[in-house]
Amino acid sequence: MRKTEPRIPTIREVAKLARVGLMTVSRVINNHPSVRPSTRKKVEAAIVQLGYRQNEAARLLKGQRAKMIGLIVPDLSDAFFASCAHTVQHIARAHGYMTLVVSSERDADLEFQQAELMASRKVSGLLIVTSTRRGDDRLRELQNTGLAIVAFDRPLPGSDADCVLVENRTGAEEATQHLISHGHKRIACVGYDEETYTIHERVLGYTHHMNAAGLKPNIALGLLTLDGIREWLTEVLASKNKPTAIFSLNHRTSIYLLQALAEQKLRIPQDMAIVGFDDFDLASIITPPLTTVAQSPVELARRSMGLLLERIQKTHDGIESSPAKILLPVKLMVRASCGPHEERPA
């Protein structure tokens, strides 16, 4: 019979037992002089009682931090994340920081390895667009050592890190309503991985608005490539109740759809209307111009960097504060890819 590994106590449990904040435990572990002797004694007793041992990442975090910001994104070849990275580097440089930028390739394990490596380099703070899909104690433990972390584009599951998000669900509802207002009733929703926070929220917005309008949702996910989009389009065009409109869940899917529709010699919007989430450079100049839900990668990165600089300063000054959450608006960019259409039969 396989022996069960003993559970390792966490810094959060130490804080709970000692009845102090996480930052206070971190200060005791790192021998910060601002901790009162009585408080230090309580924390040390809790550490002994629980058998808590500081992990390697925490040990490496001791000492003075470098004037460096870590940035982890899922994919640097994605224009959206590349724009975010450029903005972060620009702001960091203006505040005297260098930036260490890496791509996690949408791999949660690689993401943690990168975060731990950055911690070992004693970065002052970490910005992250996470690929983790559930609570991960490893990242939380890094945060609990006093490393300033801000998540953006999607929250950090299981963590109370500051985060900057956009109104994904609201944007999807507006896109769906725009298609409905042009008389469409058979509206397909197309994209890739629903487990990604942003895609999941957009699917929820689309589904909610379709149901509210008394219409049947038609969702196709897992379409990661142009070939996948081609196969899906060929299949639905042969169906009895083929869609008359498509809501695309991100800009890469929109580009694939535009190409596949052109190959099928389908006219936009006469044969198929389309709205895409995420604006992109060519959306306004292609024929016809594409209606999109726009979010600003520059503003997203700017607000995230602002939060991180604040958190770095608070950590340095020993100030504890509740995590901040910023929700940025999106904007429906109405162009010519949806209509005008007359009411169509169901």
Rank of each mutant, 00 (worst) to 15 (best):
F280Y: 07
V236C: 06
T225K: 14
D279M: 03
L261C: 09
S284H: 11
Q313D: 02
A324V: 14
L233P: 06
A260L: 10
L328N: 13
F247V: 03
A245W: 03
A262R: 10
L215D: 07
G222D: 00
T292V: 15
Q295I: 13
I319R: 07
G205S: 13
H208C: 14
L308H: 10
T244A: 03
T234C: 09
V236G: 11
F280M: 07
A213W: 04
L328R: 10
L221Q: 13
L282H: 09
S254V: 00
Y192R: 08
L327F: 00
L261M: 15
N250A: 00
R252L: 09
S337E: 11
T198W: 13
G276E: 05
Q259S: 05
S337H: 07
K265S: 15
I312N: 03
L300N: 02
I319E: 14
S254A: 12
V334S: 09
K240L: 07
V236A: 11
K242Q: 08
E235A: 15
S254Y: 01
K242P: 00
K216L: 15
R302G: 04
T234W: 05
V190A: 01
V203T: 12
Y197Q: 01
S296A: 05
L221E: 02
A220R: 14
L237W: 08
H209K: 15
M210E: 03
A212H: 04
P217A: 12
Q295R: 10
L266T: 06
S254Q: 00
T291V: 09
D279G: 07
T244K: 03
S239P: 06
I312A: 01
R302H: 04
T225C: 13
R230G: 12
D281R: 11
H316L: 01
N211F: 14
L233A: 15
D317C: 02
S248W: 02
D227C: 02
S321L: 08
L221H: 12
Q259E: 07
Y256S: 13
L328T: 15
G222S: 05
L266N: 06
D193P: 00
T291S: 12
T196A: 02
S322N: 08
A212F: 01
V330H: 09
E231C: 12
T234V: 07
I255E: 12
K242E: 00
I326K: 11
E235V: 15
E263A: 07
R230I: 06
M272E: 11
L249I: 02
I319Y: 05
G222H: 03
L309G: 08
V330P: 04
L300A: 06
K216G: 02
L266P: 04
V293C: 11
F277Y: 15
L307N: 05
N218G: 01
H251R: 02
E195R: 08
L261R: 05
V334E: 14
E320D: 10
Q264M: 05
Q259A: 09
I219E: 06
S239V: 01
M333D: 03
H251E: 07
T207A: 14
E310P: 01
R267I: 14
L332D: 03
